[in-house]
Write a protein that binds this DNA or RNA. Structure first.
Lengths: 176, 176
DNA sequence: CATCACATGTAAAAGGTTACATGATTCT
DNA sequence: AGAATCATGTAACCTTTTACATGTGATG
């Protein structure tokens, strides 16, 4: 149900076509709430049928420009500060950690070191993104910064944890 | 595809029934890789058909005791240190952050403070869990600790971020 | 005129959630 | 005898992923 709010949120800022929105999903929103083209187009149709969006004049290549309705804004507004909405957390990194005792210590340590490196790489890429985004005043600016900072802190946490975990493995040999 | 490895991982430690495994999912594994009963039973059948598990003697109430096969161990072993396996990260907290500029600053700040509180609560519950788990030497012990530490660090990061983000909102009023 | 960017959709399959359905054994 | 626990399964629905399919307009 969250993709719905991602779309409403983007359209609350300015009207756009499915194609436009996909551009945003590819650049910035991919880090926050990934979505595929087939999902976005489908959801736009559903939101229009539900009266939360309207379609404007047909553009050049069958382009459909979507605009948020009053009902759409109300729906979005209700969600914005809804504390109860939580996605079940699933992390393959964590699942690996849970079962890492089944691998030889040296291999497990190598795996964790590699994960630390990868997290470091993610941090670097986010910092690059930070420099390249035009902080122009849309919902992608002031509050995009908050999201970006979250990503940076998450990556840093994962790097530090993986580094620490590798030392723990060294200390305690494999069991099972 | 990860549920598959969660089950193989648990069964690599000791044979168990679907019901037993559900117990583990309810207690410890829920924090790592949540799964429902209907998912677990279905996957066990699929793993058996794929030759990665075998079913032992029928127990009391039609109980089916599953054991991992050599093929199952090989499959698990390949996955254990596979660096490429990554789940797309989706976080409602992050999505909220991204669009928080659309709410009034006071409301947005209240939301973030509440999220900080909630993260703090999660930390407390994990610390409780840490005390109550019997660290007996299974894959849930040494390496369950790693997973638990990850959870603690994640919650701490979220708490600190939400607290920091609230101050950022205070500084910059709403746009859109 | 060819290529690239624009632009929209559908179909099939996999993964996940919720609800329903049923029955056996053990404990009090 | 009744309740709790053990134990398995199915059906419907929603979300997400991957792949296919098609066509238009602008640019060099």
């Amino acid at each position: 149900m969250s993709l719905r709010y991602a779309l409403l949120g983007l359209l609350a800022h300015r009207s756009a076509s499915g194609y436009d929105l996909m551009g945003t999903f590819r650049s910035s929103l991919a880090h926050v709430w990934p979505a595929t083209q087939s999902q976005v187009y489908g959801e736009l149709t559903r939101l229009t049928n539900a009266g939360l969006l309207t379609v404007g004049e047909q553009g050049p290549r069958g382009r459909r420009e979507y605009a948020i309705t009053e009902a759409g804004r109300a729906e979005l507004d209700g969600w914005l500060t809804d504390e109860t909405a939580r996605t079940p957390q699933r992390s393959t990194l964590l699942l690996h950690a849970f079962f890492l005792g089944l691998a030889e210590p040296a291999r497990a340590r190598r795996y964790l070191s590699r994960q630390a490196e990868l997290a470091d790489g993610r941090m670097a890429r986010l910092r690059e993104l930070e420099g390249s985004v035009d902080w122009d005043g849309g919902p992608l600016s002031t509050h995009g910064r908050l999201a970006l900072e979250y990503g940076l802190r998450l990556a840093a946490m994962q790097r530090d944890w993986a580094t620490w975990a590798a030392t723990q493995i060294a200390a305690a040999p494999a069991e099972a």
